[in-house]
Computed example of a mutant assay.
Amino acid sequence: MRTVLTVVAGVLALLCLGGVATAVVWYNRASTPDRSTPDVAVINYLQATLVSRDPNRAGLFTCEGAVPSVDEFAADVAGRERELGVSFSINIEDVAVTETAGADATVVAVIRRSAAIDGIHQSLTDTWRFELNDRDGWRVCAGSRIS
């Protein structure tokens, strides 16, 4: 009887450890930001910076903290929203990797700001170029408006 209880306890312990290991793996997959490709990293970075306005989340997608040009753009958008009394809808469009060389990549994206101002739907677009580096996942190192 003692042998049976020891075997059952051992099997239950192994099942519990396996369950804990599975939970840890699932949690890591769910909580790790997706930096698998340059274009995905740019989209996630822009979503965090311009849509969610979450600098902590945005920092997960950058090389060394903030990207000043994008932060200035986000501050300008927020200022225009306050000035006009509207909320802009931000869309990230036409994201394309234009160049990849080893651990470096260049991505071009169009950022569209839309709002209804005085009952008239208006939209502005800006094309941006982002420089990325693969540092345990792709990260945005620089960004500049090109039109």
Rank of each mutant, 00 (worst) to 15 (best):
Val4Phe: 12
Thr6Arg: 15
Ala9His: 15
Leu14Gly: 09
Leu15His: 09
Cys16Lys: 10
Cys16Tyr: 15
Leu17Met: 10
Gly19Tyr: 04
Gly19Ala: 04
Ala21Tyr: 13
Ala21Thr: 06
Val25Arg: 12
Val25Ser: 09
Trp26Ala: 15
Asn28His: 10
Arg29Val: 05
Pro33Ser: 15
Asp34Glu: 08
Thr37Gly: 01
Val40Cys: 01
Ala41Cys: 07
Ile43Asn: 00
Tyr45Met: 10
Leu46Ala: 06
Gln47Phe: 10
Ala48Cys: 09
Leu50Lys: 08
Asn56Ile: 04
Asn56Asp: 13
Leu60Gly: 04
Phe61Met: 02
Phe61Arg: 00
Thr62Gly: 04
Thr62Lys: 09
Ala66Glu: 12
Ala66Leu: 14
Asp71Val: 15
Asp71Met: 12
Asp71Arg: 11
Arg82Phe: 06
Arg82His: 11
Leu84Trp: 00
Ser87Lys: 05
Glu93Ser: 01
Val95His: 01
Ala96Asp: 08
Val97Ser: 09
Thr98Met: 02
Glu99Gly: 07
Glu99Ile: 08
Thr100Asn: 11
Gly102Gln: 04
Ala103His: 05
Ala105Arg: 02
Ala105Trp: 09
Thr106Gly: 07
Ile111Thr: 07
Arg112Phe: 06
Ser114Asp: 01
Ala115Glu: 03
Asp118Leu: 07
Asp118Trp: 03
Asp118Pro: 05
Gly119Asn: 10
Ile120Asn: 12
Thr125Ile: 03
Arg129Trp: 00
Leu132Trp: 07
Leu132Cys: 04
Asn133Met: 12
Asp134Tyr: 04
Asp134Phe: 01
Gly137Tyr: 02
Cys141Phe: 15
Ala142Glu: 11
Ala142Met: 13
Ser144His: 00
Arg145Leu: 05
